[in-house]
């Protein structure tokens, strides 16, 4: 379950917290040839097929392929697959947690009420409000979430329906605006993550073609971190992105 959350965060959904399925949204902002980019990115979006390399942690190094499209997202690795497709105002996100065992799949379904939002080089239509359900393929909701994405504030909330889920809320308020290849995300934001009765904050900085969040890590047990802590992301404006997650894990991806 959390795999869906972390992957979505890793792929640029810094602001959406655990309600990750909106990442599968499709775009009225991105896509090749549009003017999403800032001067630093020459108008290139992140759409394309990417070879992703990450810090090796265990015995087998996983080479992952990420396909970002105007209307789709597909992540293919030896251990799992994620796909997201849009049909009308609904995005369906399938997390194949165990390859070729459909019974283990988790489905995220997100219904959008559209709103104005320019995500720049991210080729997804994210703006507006979302109603989200997260459920195993076998049926029954695990979590239900709401998400609102606007140019000055991005808020979300999830509640568990069964014990498989977990409750959390977050707000992300823009502090200052800046010209950025990430469109309306450009500038600084204050992200506040609330879970189990405690709230932690994290400053986010969306630059021309880069993202930097507050130091820290949640996965290792850090008591004051948020899921978006410890992230750096750089785009060279051409065919390479790289950065860090959780303050230590490195990644790089090259567009084919």
């Amino acid at each position: 379950m959390k795999q869906v959350v972390w992957w979505a965060l890793a792929l640029g959904g810094l602001f959406v917290g655990g309600c990750s399925n909106d990442k599968g949204g499709t775009g009225n902002q991105g896509g090749s040839g549009n003017t999403a980019g800032s001067p630093g990115t020459s108008g290139k979006t992140l759409a394309g097929t990417w070879d992703l390399t990450t810090t090796p942690l265990e015995g087998d190094v996983v080479m992952t392929t990420v396909v970002l499209g105007q209307d789709s997202l597909a992540i293919t690795s030896p251990d799992f697959n994620l796909t997201a497709t849009r049909s009308g105002d609904t995005v369906t996100y399938t997390d194949e947690q165990t390859v070729n065992i459909p019974a283990d799949d988790v489905l995220l379904t997100a219904k959008q009420s559209a709103g104005s939002f320019n995500a720049g080089i991210v080729p997804f239509d994210l703006g507006g409000s979302w109603m989200i359900t997260i459920a195993p393929a076998s049926g029954g909701s695990v979590m239900t979430c709401t998400l609102s994405v606007g140019a000055s504030e991005i808020d979300g909330s999830c509640r568990k329906v069964t014990d498989d889920g977990f409750d959390f809320d977050f707000t992300t308020a823009k502090q200052t605006s800046a010209v950025s290849s990430f469109g309306d995300l450009g500038g600084t934001w204050l992200h506040t993550w609330t879970q189990n009765g405690s709230a932690n904050t994290c400053a986010l900085d969306f630059g021309d073609a880069s993202i930097k969040t507050c130091p820290g890590t949640l996965a290792g047990g850090g008591s004051s971190a948020t899921p978006v802590s410890g992230i750096t992301f750089d785009f060279d404006g051409a065919d390479t992105v790289s950065g860090t997650l959780q303050g230590w894990a490195e990644f790089s991806a090259t567009r084919r």
Partner: peptide, 29 residues
Amino acid sequence: APSSYADVLPDIPALTAAANLLGSPWNAE
């Protein structure tokens, strides 16, 4: 507690690079 993997292995970027240097042949799809 150690708050992250980086607390235990602060030189992980060097280890990552060294593993790639010795990784020939490098395979992908």
